[in-house]
Amino acid sequence: MKISQTEEQTLLSQSISRYLADRYDDAARRRAEAQACGYDRDTWTEIAELGWLGASVGESAGGFGGPREMAIVLEGAGRAMMAEPLVTACLALSILEAADPSHGSLPGLLSGNSMACGLAAQAGSGLSVTGRNGSRVLSGRFPTVHAGAAADLLVLALPDIAVALDPAARGIDMRAFRGMDGRRYADIVFRDVPLDDGSVLCEGETARPVADRASQVFSVATAAEASGIAARLFEETLAYVAQREQFGQPIGRFQALQHRLADMYVAVEEARSLALAAARSAEDDEAPGRAVSQAVVGTVDRALHVAKEAIQLHGGVGMTEDLPLGAGLRRIKVLQLMPGGAEDHRKRLTT
């Protein structure tokens, strides 16, 4: 499947590639992961100024893009394996755009002066809103939120209500931890968190489309990032087999390895096409369904295949931290296993 880009989308992609080539290498990623908040705040401000965050929402919310532009940003971030919480931030912006495009937090979020984490909770997630003593309260647990402990705002989309909460509000507890991919996450527990009119973005019948949109955006972001990681690991492998010699010639000349490289190339192109197809579906405002789930599962499965093959073709050096292969594999596993990730989509396809 070939999905062409507009001139503006091509310029956005080129701008992202130039920035990452000049400013964000593997050493920068490791420095960002080592920060107390789990990412580099200066980098966050820079990419916001370059419009990366604005690419995820339309003009009505102060941005200039939508799902396809967001996919371009996340694919680029995936290539660099950026530690910055772009997926959760783009999700938060998309929820705000769908629920209240004039929300007062949007200018600060788009400028990078603050950071919001979006949470897309499906039916059966364990989060619920109930009435208590004449008011409404939010209860439940949402696990594995990237940079959740560093967020200035939590934006939740449930099937029957969407809310924006101060992380310091009474009843919100967080357990911060480092994930297998080296990034900082938080398990967030809501214990009878009071909801007032100021925190409720929308509810009732108007909340269902917002929740659907949130699920769709998170799926597109997951697929786009996975496709970017796969492309990076394939490029690393091509460069390695061209310079690693055995029996007096580069190992890339061996036919058996060329066959495996060809399979990797096909997987990378399929992953990218599936991610872009998911973005196009979201752009057309199609309801999230089997097609989106198939795109996420297919993209992550192919990225995982590429990562494993990349390590195999590098040999023992592929397991060292000197190369980005291990980091890429671990990140793909997180995209596979996290709430709303590829395995959750696989379960939907089999039920």
Results as ranks from 00 to 15, higher is better:
K2V: 15
S4R: 15
T6N: 07
E8I: 05
L11D: 13
L12I: 08
S13E: 13
S13F: 05
I16C: 03
A21Q: 12
Y24E: 00
A28D: 08
R29Q: 04
R30K: 09
A32M: 00
A32W: 00
C37K: 01
D40I: 00
R41V: 03
T43Q: 12
W44E: 00
T45Q: 12
V57D: 10
G62K: 06
G65D: 08
P67Y: 05
M70S: 15
A71F: 09
A77D: 01
A77P: 02
A83V: 01
V87C: 03
A89Q: 13
S94A: 14
D100Q: 10
H103E: 03
G104I: 06
G104L: 09
G104A: 13
G104N: 02
L109G: 03
G112Y: 02
M115D: 00
L119E: 09
L119Q: 10
A120L: 02
T130C: 12
T130K: 15
S135D: 11
V137Q: 09
S139D: 15
S139W: 13
F142E: 10
F142A: 14
V145T: 14
H146N: 12
D152C: 06
V155Y: 08
A162S: 15
V163S: 07
D166F: 03
D166L: 02
D173R: 15
D173G: 14
R175W: 05
G182M: 01
R183E: 12
R184H: 11
Y185F: 14
Y185R: 08
D187Q: 05
V189G: 06
R191Q: 15
D197Q: 12
S199A: 15
V200P: 07
V200M: 03
L201P: 11
G204M: 09
E205R: 13
T206G: 01
A207Q: 09
P209I: 04
P209T: 06
V210W: 03
A211G: 06
D212Y: 03
D212Q: 13
R213W: 08
V217W: 05
V220Y: 03
V220S: 08
R232Q: 14
R232W: 09
E235M: 06
E236V: 05
L238N: 07
Q246A: 15
Q246G: 12
Q246I: 11
Q249F: 11
F254G: 02
L257W: 02
H259W: 09
Y265M: 12
V266Y: 07
V266M: 09
S273V: 05
A275S: 14
A277Y: 09
A278L: 09
R280F: 05
Q294Y: 00
A295R: 04
V297K: 01
T299F: 08
T299K: 10
D301K: 07
L304M: 11
H305R: 12
V306W: 01
K308R: 15
E309D: 07
I311H: 00
L313Q: 05
G315T: 10
A327P: 04
K333W: 13
V334M: 10
Q336R: 15
M338N: 11
G341M: 12
A342C: 11
H345Y: 02
R346H: 11
L349Y: 07
